[in-house]
Amino acid sequence: MTVHSFQEKFDEKIDREDTIEPRDWMPDDYRKTLIRQISQHAHSEIVGMLPEGNWITRAPSLRRKAVLLAKVQDEGGHGLYLYSAAETLGITRDEMLEQLHSGKAKYSSIFNYPTTTWADMGAIGWLVDGAAIMNQVPLCRTSYGPYARAMVRVCKEESFHQRQGFEIMLTLAKGTEEQKKMAQDALDRWWWPSIMMFGPPDAESPNSESSMRWRIKRFSNDELRQKFIDVTVEQTKILGLTLPDKDLKWNEARGHYDYGAINWEEFWNVVKGNGPCNKERLETRRKAWEEGAWVREAALANAKKRAERKNKEASAA
């Protein structure tokens, strides 16, 4: 078969909505796009453990502490499935981590914002995980099999995360004046970064067109953002809080909420590394990795010794 016929077969599969599996032929760009997207997603999970991990030791009740620990543990688990899915495309986890630590690979910019009060645990669960679910549910049907299957598991757990986040917000919003203030303050700080999570507007999204063609992506950034805003406005009413956007208004003709201008300059600034916590987050990840080097070496050395002893015993027998 020629490259041309490989390509044809791949295109047919995509059109038939078949999944592409690790052993199947795939165009280089498809492979590269997936490695970039899946590893970025995995990095987001493990960097995302930090802003929430920040509050584990300070959680205000034992039940909240247990739920938060379980949630952050789930995120580590998501990181694991996603790294494994990316590995099926011919890259190792160590290579991906190297790209993260050197700053070559990106992770979701939202994790470069600080978690300054307990209400941030609510806002992250409700808004950040909520936005992540909007992005991720379509990925359960994405064309690359291992990614789609990993996402099915991830999405199940994310919806539990979102519910617990909303419940934290609801408790605060129904609480004392100080607690209400805490909830509103968190909403004010997380709202715009959350709707930026869907990425740049469609007209300026560099990777979107081929990703749509390959069914790596199924909805455009703006479509998903609109869907998220429509749902969240209603949830905010239940909380009795105010979204920090004075232009937010129901548009009868469109059947959607209109919203104000997004500050894309801030978005690109954070992507470039100038967010409030970019340096801290990366430094923390690097430090954990570097300080863990002797531990990983010890585990490898011990495994080697055990294997050698086993071989010796086997040959002696």
Partner: peptide
Amino acid sequence: EWCGHGPVLEQDIALTNTAL
């Protein structure tokens, strides 16, 4: 306190589970 700072992801998860 180890959560998110473990030497390797699998052990990070194991420790978090133990804390829980």
